[in-house]
Write a protein that binds this DNA or RNA. Structure first.
Length: 417
RNA sequence: GUGGGUAUAGCUCAGCCGGUAGAGCGCUGGAUUGUGGUUCCAGUGGCCGAGGGUUCGAAUCCCUCUACCCACCCCA
């Protein structure tokens, strides 16, 4: 039997309703903050991600779905979308449009990792980028926006982590300092940290091994090494978040995996997700456009929500709450009633009601089916009703059944919407 | 790439020390006429992940493989 390939999955009812709910909430919030949608291709030239994400990152070195096209060019299924959005910004000269470009996207991304809870090879991200301003006010607004999405989606009990990772002016100095310290400390740490101390010192900071924590505590903090630009920028972001009453925790050891981040970085974690507890990550990337070879500066900040993880957490918090239930199920008794039901259903469907028509059978069974599929109302339609010109409308929640005339049905259904 | 766990009905799982399969849920139907949720009855269901070995006999013991899950790595 042919099965879905490793790390991919079918999204089925009823949980697809949660996906739609999350996406609908996101679209509504994006609209409120005046973000507009952008849809970039699912695959791009490999170079875009190699340069955008960082040649040395794990994503680029071992997790990309890269293939050779028939003309010999190297293409890659997108492992993330920020680089592509910036590419589009440069390609279409969106810098020439008025104001800050605020764009959102949602869709599948691809990384060839070993699947586990909350991690898939085809996974979905809901993200946004605000391009064209270096102002810390934008940073705060972006964080406010993403928190708004999470809350309105039905998530609670999450923690927003905030940090600044500096910029090309100050981070190298900090990294050098860190290397120095690690020269002494690393030998006392876990094997992974000893490796990271050489390859990527910043990664040592978020090692999870308990024994290493005391050592990590004593390592220098990047926040003490921010330059004259980064330091006030970070202070301003915090100020604006405080103004809004948005809760966050400063985590000087929060580092991001993608090379393009600078200054503000943030992450939201949630307990109910297993080891992959991060629901979203984001940050500022003022130098990304240049590293893509663009001559136009495109300072920006963005985030991406791991939709699979958000859906998982929302489902856990509100089981069964977002199921798609039909407003009405029509139960015709007999051939004449079935024909009549077809016409009636079409009329109601044109008024945007969700209507199911039973193909027939014993009333007891069809009522049982109506109950199982969650129909809010049931309309019983037999010879008596056709003759009398009224229908029997039953409220499946209360069990109360009342005679209604055709023109009353819509109004009765409205009452429950 | 590394480690651990699990594979038996559509789903969740029993099945001890080897004697050729069970439950609950689901699904279909019935409990006399056109009334659901509860109840009762019946039916439907399985190459016991695949291959090999031990044995008179393997879902059960051994080996190999595969798949899935979880964790590491890394990240959303």
């Amino acid at each position: 039997m042919i099965r879905a390939v490793k790390g991919t999955r079918d999204l089925l009812p009823p949980s697809i309703a949660v996906w739609n709910h999350v996406e609908q909430v996101a679209r509504r919030v994006f609209r409120a903050y005046h973000y507009q949608e952008i849809r970039t291709p699912i695959f791009e030239e490999t170079q875009l991600f190699a340069r955008g994400v960082g040649e040395e990152t794990d994503i680029v070195t071992k997790e990309m779905y890269t293939f050779e096209d028939r003309d010999g060019s190297s293409l890659t299924l997108r492992p993330e979308n920020t680089a592509a959005v910036i590419r589009a910004y440069l390609e279409h000269r969106l810098d020439q449009r008025p104001g800050i470009q605020k764009l959102f996207y949602l869709g599948p991304m691809f990384r060839r990792e070993r699947p586990q809870k909350g991690r898939y090879r085809q996974f979905y991200q809901i993200g946004a980028e605000a391009i064209g301003s270096e102002s810390p006010a934008i940073d705060a607004e972006v964080i406010e926006l993403v928190v708004e999405i999470l809350e309105r989606a039905g998530l609670s009990g999450f923690t927003t982590l905030l940090n600044s990772v500096g910029c090309p002016a100050c981070r190298p100095r900090y990294v050098a300092r860190l290397r120095e310290e690690l020269g002494e400390a690393a030998p006392r740490m876990c094997p992974d940290c000893q490796r990271r101390a050489v390859t990527n010192p910043l990664r040592v900071l978020d090692c999870k091994i308990p024994e290493d924590q005391p050592v990590i505590e004593r390592l220098p903090s990047i926040l003490d090494h921010l330059c004259d630009v980064c330091q006030p920028h970070f202070a301003a972001v915090r100020q604006y978040l405080d103004d809004r009453g948005i809760a966050y925790e400063v985590r000087p050891r929060l580092v991001r995996g993608l090379d393009y981040y600078m200054r503000t970085t943030f992450e939201v974690v949630h307990g109910a997700l297993g080891a992959q507890n991060s629901v979203l990550g984001g940050g500022r990337y003022d130098g990304l456009a240049e590293s893509l070879g663009g001559r136009i500066p495109a300072p920006g900040i963005g985030f991406s929500i791991g939709e699979d993880r958000l859906v998982m957490a929302v489902e856990e918090a509100h089981p069964g709450r977002f199921a798609d239930r039909p407003d009405l199920m029509i139960l015709p008794l007999g051939e004449a009633a079935l024909r009549h039901a077809g016409l009636l259903a079409r009329e109601l469907r044109r008024q945007d009601f969700s209507v199911e028509v039973s193909p027939g059978g014993k009333l007891k069974r069809t009522l049982e089916t109506a109950h199982k599929i969650g129909a809010r109302f049931v309309l019983i339609l037999g010879d008596d009703e056709i003759a009398g010109g009224t229908y029997s409308l039953k409220d499946m929640t209360s069990g109360v059944q009342t005679p209604v005339r055709r023109e009353e049905i819509a109004r009765r259904l409205e009452g429950i919407q």
